[in-house]
Amino acid sequence: MDEILTRSTRTACWFLAICLMCWAVLPEWRIYSAGVALGVSASLVNAFLLRKRVAWIGTLYKDNPNPPRKVGLGLASRLAMVLLATMLAYRFPDRFHLPSVLYSCFFMPVVSLFFAFLNNRRSS
């Protein structure tokens, strides 16, 4: 899983660099590239939050013979991150394009799924 997340993070950083170059070079696309950069950033933070939470749950169940009954995956914190990005885009519509932010919040799950598919195909 670490290899897939590393490749996905590297892809997200390259994509952010391309978005920032588009923001700097193309003034008419500035609002769209800023929205995509905000959404990809929120998606990147969500991926790291999920990785940290899954690692914590793994150690909790591995080390404890009687784990607690109710342990979640931290959905509220990840939803709050997407909500924060959406609220920023809603509050500043002259700087961020709201649909671009919402669409790009799904960047890391899609890229991670793509790399997991490639990794599975290569191993079999």
Rank of each mutant, 00 (worst) to 15 (best):
L5M: 15
R53S: 04
L113I: 11
T11N: 05
S77L: 08
L84Y: 08
V25F: 10
F115H: 03
I57S: 06
T9D: 02
S124F: 15
I18M: 10
F117N: 11
A17T: 08
A12S: 04
H97T: 11
A42V: 01
L102M: 13
W29T: 14
R78P: 07
F96P: 03
L16V: 05
S100E: 05
T86K: 10
V45S: 03
V36Y: 02
S77D: 15
N64L: 01
V110F: 03
S8R: 00
A76Q: 15
L79F: 14
P65G: 09
R121V: 03
W56M: 07
P65K: 07
M108F: 01
R122D: 10
F15Y: 08
R51Q: 14
M87I: 14
V110Y: 03
L83E: 12
I31P: 05
C22I: 15
R53P: 02
S43V: 05
F107D: 05
W23H: 14
N64V: 01
K62R: 08
W14V: 11
L118C: 14
G58V: 11
T9K: 04
L38R: 01
M108H: 04
L73I: 06
A55P: 03
R91Q: 14
A80R: 10
N119L: 13
S123E: 09
A12R: 04
S77T: 04
N119I: 11
N46H: 00
A42W: 06
S123C: 09
C19S: 10
R95L: 13
T6A: 13
A116G: 06
M1L: 11
S43E: 00
L88D: 00
M1S: 11
R121H: 09
A55D: 02
L44N: 00
A24D: 08
V71R: 03
L75Y: 08
R53F: 00
V25Q: 10
L16P: 01
N64A: 02
L88S: 05
R30Q: 09
G74N: 02
R122E: 08
L98C: 08
F114Y: 10
S124H: 15
R7F: 03
A55T: 02
L49T: 02
A89V: 09
F107Q: 01
F96T: 10
C19T: 07
G58M: 13
V45L: 11
M81E: 12
Y103M: 14
E3T: 15
L79N: 09
V25G: 07
W23T: 13
R69G: 15
G74I: 00
V101F: 03
F96L: 05
E3N: 14
L98S: 06
S123T: 15
R122M: 10
A12H: 04
I31W: 15
S33H: 06
A85V: 09
A55N: 07
H97N: 12
P65I: 06
L102R: 06
W56Y: 07
P109Q: 04
R10N: 08
